[in-house]
Design a protein around this nucleic acid. Structure first.
Lengths: 209, 209
DNA sequence: ACTAGATGTAAACGTTTGCTGACTTACCAG
DNA sequence: CTGGTAAGTCAGCAAACGTTTACATCTAGT
């Protein structure tokens, strides 16, 4: 069956060494599969065998690479947090509502909308809760900072509170649109349908300074 | 140990027949315990033994009164929906933000805030998903109607969409305040802290007509 | 080519899960 | 008091769970 020889072909470039056994790639396959499952079905309803099958990988490798199911879940939270932080960092202050709308609009199983619902999933593990709190805190602080928040200033606490409410609204919309609920017409709304109301919502909570 | 005799005491009023075996009361005990557990820990992470212990009742009675764990969960969703419908029905149109703020503010394990997070819990069962969709649809239609929505009118679809976004915001805030996340300062905010921003949020989405 | 370590596999482990059947106890009409 | 039935108990089953162990196979350096 293996018609293809090992063929390292040393002359080729780096981009595709394509080893048949690559720990890094396997780790990534598990992470991607786990993020989708955890986001869609929740922590407890997802079995390690589900994840391994989705990734096309042996179950025992979850324990090897992530210590445990909880370890894998924490890695998922960290990955989602990094992704959120990265995309939030490159969003200019006045484009915040559009960015939120765009990320909420995509209903793909790997999109940012899916990462938002993942952040609500709980494993009952204290470590995971800590990570989630950190991710959400950082995200809300980024959002608040984009609208003029400076920590320590008088009245800054309320701005942060309002940013967290805006974040909550975004997460709520993402969840109500998600596959397990699909509330209509919200779930069928396009990015254009969402951006208007979302802009009014964000501007009402956090007036552009 | 039973120092107290049966003592039906026929002369007393109705309010406390207090039978030692009362199917209706047992059903209610199970429902209350289940609603708290399901709302706090989610469906899959909650075991029927947990619920029975909380209710101080034998495990087998869950199967007797609710057929199965899923049947109990569906009964919880229906109960939460009824409660939501009832309190929403007696809220005048202009008091909507205050009502939302008040219900989100109470962090008790039995309060309406807890019912909102329950509505996001999924069991993977199609019947439960159907109930949840119905409850959320009815709630958003009530909210939309309070702000001038009339089904079928031109442009009414967008009003309903905006009502669902407001509902999503409320649910999102409730979840981010809930025990498993506790995002600060949102989680520590009082009803007075919430009502202002919440009013601006709702009024921005659904201008009072 | 050879070998040591990295990577992947298969099977089983002990526990927990939802649920059931046979049984006991309390209630109330007669 | 007594019998019939509603209400509650108890022990256990079969399946599914996360994890571990012992083994097989690949990769890379020499």
């Amino acid at each position: 069956m293996t018609a293809e020889p090992p063929v390292p072909s040393a002359t080729a470039g780096e981009p595709a060494p394509r080893r048949r056994r690559d720990a890094t790639e396997t780790r990534q396959l598990l992470l991607d599969a786990a993020r989708q499952r955890f986001a869609r079905d929740g922590y407890a309803a997802t079995t390690v065998r589900d994840i391994a099958d989705d990734a096309g990988v042996n179950v025992a490798l979850i324990s090897r690479y992530f210590s445990s199911k909880e370890g894998l879940f924490e890695a998922c939270l960290r990955a989602a947090g990094d992704e959120l932080h990265r995309t939030a960092g490159q969003t200019p202050a006045e484009r915040v509502p559009e960015a939120i709308a765009r990320h909420i609009a995509d209903l793909g199983t790997a999109g940012l909308s899916s990462q938002l619902t993942l952040l609500l999933r709980s494993s009952g593990d204290a470590g995971a809760d800590e990570i989630r709190r950190g991710v959400l805190s950082r995200a809300s602080e980024q959002l608040a900072a984009a609208r003029g928040w400076r920590p320590g200033e008088p009245g800054s606490e309320e701005i942060l509170l309002r940013a967290q409410m805006a974040l909550a609204a975004g997460i709520g919309v993402a969840v109500l649109r998600s596959s397990s609920i699909q509330l209509e017409p919200l779930s069928a709304a396009t990015e254009q349908d969402l951006v208007g109301p979302l802009r009014e919502l964000v501007d009402a909570l956090l007036p552009p300074h």
